Simulated assay, not measured.
Amino acid sequence: MNRTTDIIIINSVEKIPALDTIRSIPREQTLKLIFEKEVQNLREATGQQLRTNLKGFYVGIHTLEPEIRIAKLITDLEIEENQDFFEQCAKDYRALGEELIDMLVDKLDLKLNKDFPLETFNQLIREQKGNGTIGDWEYNIHGFHCSFDNTKTHQSIEVPLVFGQEFGDLDPYFFSLYIKSTDKYKPLPVDIFEDYADGLRINEKMLALGKFERIISNLGGHFGTVVSDRKKVEIKSNLELEKMYQK
């Protein structure tokens, strides 16, 4: 479903809508406050106050333009009512991630470091083999992930490389894009409009429901989120990896 945008020109303090008015907007509508020159000095403070008082809303303070964009995020109730759907999406994400990594390892005849896959994939970047195609998929290694984009279906997935053999970490932004690009989920049972912010709320609520759980990363201070109902794999911490490499 497409969103509409309601624009309000702010030329005085009185034009700033009340919190109850903002809270009443549906998720299918965004609100854009445009501050005219004489009150542009109010934009930053107004935006920070709105962020404090509007729980469950995205409040974006534009860094260059005199604008604030406000949108209602997916609700706890919507997530709870669709928890089985999000759980299945997470399971599918994990299965597809494993399948694509296996395909890539086989095609490139890699000797995968199963404890720390990022080491193997960083070597590909150094050898200028960090992107290419396997079957209908284009792949691109970047940061802590390898992205895969299907040239026929346009399905998109980012597979994590810093959780050992656990390829199902659900980055909020990437998880939202995966769900929205997967044909078999359409039409979605609940809309996802704000890819990162809605994805973060989905993860947080699913964690609270026990459907998702936290996992450690190979990197110190970094954690992930995965579906709870899965075949668990061992993930070595950065300290364990350091001990291994010192031997």
Rank of each mutant, 00 (worst) to 15 (best):
K107R: 12
L96G: 04
E80N: 09
F175V: 02
L170I: 00
D102T: 15
I192N: 07
I8S: 03
V233W: 00
E44T: 04
K184D: 05
K211W: 02
D106F: 05
T5K: 13
S228V: 04
K205L: 09
R3G: 00
D229A: 09
I215H: 07
I192G: 10
Y185M: 04
K243Y: 03
T30P: 00
T52L: 05
R69N: 10
P117H: 06
I22H: 01
T120N: 02
R214C: 03
L124G: 04
K180H: 06
F175D: 01
L239I: 08
R214N: 11
V159N: 06
I16W: 09
L100F: 05
F212T: 08
D183L: 14
I141P: 01
K129A: 12
L207F: 10
R126E: 13
Y196S: 02
G56Q: 06
P117S: 06
N150I: 09
E240K: 07
L64P: 00
I141W: 02
I141S: 09
P26A: 07
K32R: 14
L112V: 02
M103L: 15
I25A: 03
K15C: 12
T120Y: 03
I202H: 03
K55R: 12
T21P: 03
I134D: 11
D6V: 10
N122Q: 15
G210Y: 10
S24V: 00
L104W: 09
D6N: 14
L31K: 03
F212W: 07
N11C: 06
K186F: 11
L200H: 13
D106P: 02
D191R: 07
L188V: 02
F174G: 15
K55V: 13
I101L: 11
N218K: 01
D136E: 13
L100R: 08
M206E: 05
V226F: 01
S228M: 09
V105H: 08
N82W: 11
G221T: 07
E67Y: 08
T75W: 09
E28L: 04
K184I: 13
I179V: 12
D183Q: 15
T52S: 05
T30K: 14
N11G: 06
I22C: 00
D102S: 15
L118W: 06
L207N: 08
P189I: 07
E127R: 14
F212G: 07
R214S: 10
A71I: 04
Y185V: 07
Q88S: 04
S217E: 11
Y58L: 14
T151R: 14
N140R: 15
R51F: 02
G199L: 02
Y139I: 00
S176M: 08
T225S: 02
L241N: 08
K243S: 07
Q40E: 15
A197W: 03
T21M: 13
E138L: 13
C89M: 01
K180I: 12
V59N: 07
I141E: 05
V226R: 02
K236Q: 10
Q155A: 15
Q48V: 12
I7G: 02
Q83S: 15
K231L: 02
A90W: 02
K72P: 12
G164F: 01
K186G: 04
F57A: 10
K111V: 13
S237K: 00
V105G: 12
K152H: 08
N203L: 13
L188C: 04
